[in-house]
Nucleic acid binder design. Structure first.
Length: 229
DNA sequence: GCAAAGATTTGCT
DNA sequence: GCAAATCTTTGCC
């Protein structure tokens, strides 16, 4: 049920509506039988210059410039010097807002995702040997392959060169695709955002993390605590 | 021009 | 449960 372009207008309105539209949709890399496809099951919204948890809180800078551009474009940045994070721009051009893709449920191209993760592990972590990465990642269940923002980018071979690409263009190698209505009927839960301890209230407690309740691909141990409330 | 911190993941204590 | 790995971006002197 993939193949339909993702309508840009679904991302052009308020970010909560955009988040609910994006949950259940697909992120696709490549074409043909080896294409990597993942269902989006967890996102976080970063909205406006006033959001003290957002990269846009210092105004427009070289790094966050695409956040101020049109919706549907990819914003990719490097965190902690080793992991990349993928965002989809939302809201009207000129207003900095984005959805961080925190987790995907692998649908197709699962072995290709393992290969991509092993390659990414070799690039980012030189502490362990390649054989160790192959064993560790090869043993992961599919639902754990892309269950975190850094892991999403590892599985889909996303780095800073992807920054600024149009994810709503059906011709893009990395793109969004719409799901059928039936597939979009998923139970969506909300919680505060993860990993923004540097922010202050009220931004710290805004329930701007959206995820599919009970889905095994939703990210990490920290999730269980916040999801349970 | 330099120092500090970060929208994370992993392994070890 | 804690700290390391690692480097870009931002803020301040």
């Amino acid at each position: 049920m993939t193949g339909a372009p993702f309508p840009r207008h679904l991302l052009a309105g308020d970010s909560e509506s955009a988040a609910r539209a994006l949950i259940g949709a697909f992120l696709v890399r490549g074409n043909g039988p080896n294409a990597r496809i993942g269902r989006i099951v967890e996102v976080e919204a970063y909205v406006g210059i006033e959001d003290l948890a957002s990269h846009a809180r210092f105004g427009r800078t070289n790094r966050n410039a695409v956040m101020f551009g049109p919706p549907g474009v990819a914003y990719v940045y490097l965190v902690y010097g080793m992991h990349h994070c993928l965002n989809v721009i939302t809201e009207a051009e000129g207003r900095p807002a984005a959805l961080l893709i925190r987790a995907l449920e692998p649908v197709s191209g699962i072995e290709e995702m393992r290969t991509a993760r092993i390659a990414a592990a070799g690039r980012t972590s030189t502490r362990r040997g390649h054989d160790s990465d192959v064993a560790r990642i090869g043993g992961l269940p599919a639902a754990r392959l892309a269950s975190g923002p850094g892991l999403v980018c590892a599985c889909f071979t996303i780095d800073r060169t992807t920054d600024g690409d149009d994810l709503c263009d059906p011709g893009s190698d990395l793109r969004l695709e719409a799901a059928s209505d039936a597939q979009m009927r998923l139970p969506v839960a909300q919680s505060p955002r993860v990993g923004i301890g540097y922010a202050t209230e009220p931004w710290l407690s805004k329930p701007w993390r959206f995820f599919v309740e009970g889905n095994p691909a939703v990210s990490g141990p920290r999730v269980a605590a916040t999801a349970a409330q």
